[in-house]
Structure formats: structure tokens, C-alpha cells
Amino acid sequence: MSARDVSHSPVLTAIRQKFGSAVVEMHAFRGDETVVILPTKLHELMRFLRDDPRMQFNFLMDITAVDWPERHPRFDVVYHLYSLKYNRRLRVKTRVDDGDTVDSVTDLWRGANWLEREVYDMFGIRFRHHPDLRRILMYDEFEGHPLRKDYPLRQEQPRVPYRIAPRDPWRDPDIWNR
């Protein structure tokens, strides 16, 4: 079974039939069925996947994003779904740019509330119609979105005044005289 050959998968064929033109790409790399869809049709696809009796993806396992800074559009928002009845998984991806918004799926699955807040916090992707979009893991005064590739790993934004100067043990041999 090659990664691009999706004709044997009932889910992917049904999605292709219903959403033909909006589907950007489909593959099944290492057995994970994946569909990439346009952001305008995302909510419709999600509703179809949750409610249609052949699909019944009642679990939203995860929402996350991947940053490809050299590509336009920059972000991949990734949804992982699971169907309890048919025991199968699906990954739905959509591509958005910096500053674009994505439709929120909070009205379909309540777990999406916190998951989308985390994507907003870490990447800066806003979700339309989200009831309460604010930071969840970082503090409110934090500037920037840490998981973007252009945010440096070690750039700290302290909130409490330091009582001694921080020393970097790898570059400062005199750390013992702290």
C-alpha cells in the first residue's frame, strides 16, 4: 500500500466525493490517513466527520500546529480525530498564514476550547467564534508566541526582579563565585 494510494480507504474516498475541490491533498503515510483541506471548508468538514453515520468521529483527540516559516501559507493546523464506533483515526490539516483566522470547532467538541487556546498561545493563530481566546500556558504579559520558529529558545521574559545576575555555566567559568 503506497502512501498516495487512498482508494481503499472508505473515509478518504467519502471525503473526496463530498468535498472534491476543497481537498488539497490526501495521503496515508505509515498508515495514518490524512486529508488537507482549505480553511474555508474546515468547519463543514468537521461537522460532516462528526455527524455523518458512516464517519462518526466523536473524539477530537488533539489540535496542534506546525510552523513552516519558509512556506506560504506558514502554519499547518492539525486535527486528530478518532471514531469509537469504527475504531479508526483520521488527521485533518489546513494551511493558514500569519494573521489568518481559522474557524473554531468548539461548538462541535467541547475539548477544542483549551486545545485552540493552546494553539493561539504557542503560535498566534486566532480562531473565529472561540468563546474565550486567551493565553493558557504562558502568562498574559508574555510577548510573542514561543513555538514559532523565529522565537529564540532561550529568550526569557522574567517577571520578578533578579537579586543576583544570572550566570551561564557553559560560558562563564567563574560561576562558583555566585
Binding site: P152, Q155, E156, Q157, P161, Y162, I164, A165, P166, R171
Partner: peptide, 19 residues
């Protein structure tokens, strides 16, 4: 103490960035 230098974010250049 020679090390008790109060550092507030945004006041001067951040020393906590290890570039």
C-alpha cells in the same frame, strides 16, 4: 553584595538571553 544588581525586564538589555 557585588552580585545584588536588581534587574527588571524592559529596563536595560536582557542578560538572560544566551545568544
Amino acid at each position: 553584595s557585588p552580585y545584588a544588581r536588581t534587574w527588571m525586564p524592559g529596563v536595560e538589555e536582557p542578560v538572560a538571553v544566551t545568544d
